[in-house]
Design a protein around this nucleic acid. Structure first.
Lengths: 133, 133
DNA sequence: CTGCATCCTGGGCGATACTG
DNA sequence: CAGTATCGCCCAGGATGCAG
């Protein structure tokens, strides 16, 4: 996080917090980045799952990526890993309470995304009618 | 956006909306993705800027990337591009009203990111004291 | 079953030079 | 001044195989 904006006159928000603000946004983006984390969080939102269950239910993900993402998410305290010592051994993952704080943020992303898709589609349609007119 | 989660029993939210929800989140992430968009939006939050001004104030960005990001953001209706026919020619960019809807979302990302950084740092400190104890 | 190591490819991003 | 073109690096992520 070495991204910086040079000093500029303030209109609306405090500059002194600006760099930190930007860094904080990137922190969250990093936690959610990659192709699979959102999907995994959404799936685990339905309840705890075993590794192999996640592998089946998240269509398209490879074993390597799932391991990597889960380890990453565990380090970020988003999921709890529990080893069940049966034969054969199994491991269950579940969302932490901490991760629940993230859900409203994800919802706000989803809301804007939904609106945005409509907006872009409408613009596309409008351009087509203008051409045909 | 072909990411899918297979049917699973619902606990809490409706499954039928789940795929769309995930796709919508990714839509927003795509719009904000890359190394520079957040920074550019934040800068333009202070007011309109010329291309060369942005180039100077966003430290580290190259001309190529700035052109590319601005073009991308213009397609996504986030910025408005205005050519001023002076000599030498200049171009000013400003946030659209539409982009303003995105600011609360960005703020929520920043809030969680700030908290998360504290959380991870605290965990790190705690692990160190446990080792020394 | 769970998870890591290896190899490989596409795309994000940087540096530099060039055009209107 | 505002961009584009070319080159090239690096790394996220896919495929496959191995280990505990």
């Amino acid at each position: 996080m070495e991204i910086k904006v040079k000093e500029v006159p303030c209109e609306g928000h405090e500059y002194s917090n600006c760099d930190k603000h930007i860094a904080a946004v990137h922190d969250t983006m990093d936690v959610l980045s990659g192709k699979w984390k959102i999907t995994i969080i959404s799936l685990l939102g339905f309840g705890k799952r075993r590794y192999s269950e996640i592998l089946k239910e998240v269509t398209g993900i490879s074993g390597k990526m799932l391991s990597r993402e889960l380890k990453d998410m565990e380090m970020n305290l988003l999921v709890k890993r529990t080893v069940i010592s049966e034969q054969p051994i199994s491991v269950v993952y579940e969302l932490t309470d901490y991760c629940v704080d993230l859900l409203p943020v994800i919802h706000s992303l989803a809301e804007w995304g939904t609106k945005h898709r409509r907006c872009i589609v409408d613009q596309f349609k409008q351009e087509r009618t203008e051409v045909s007119a």
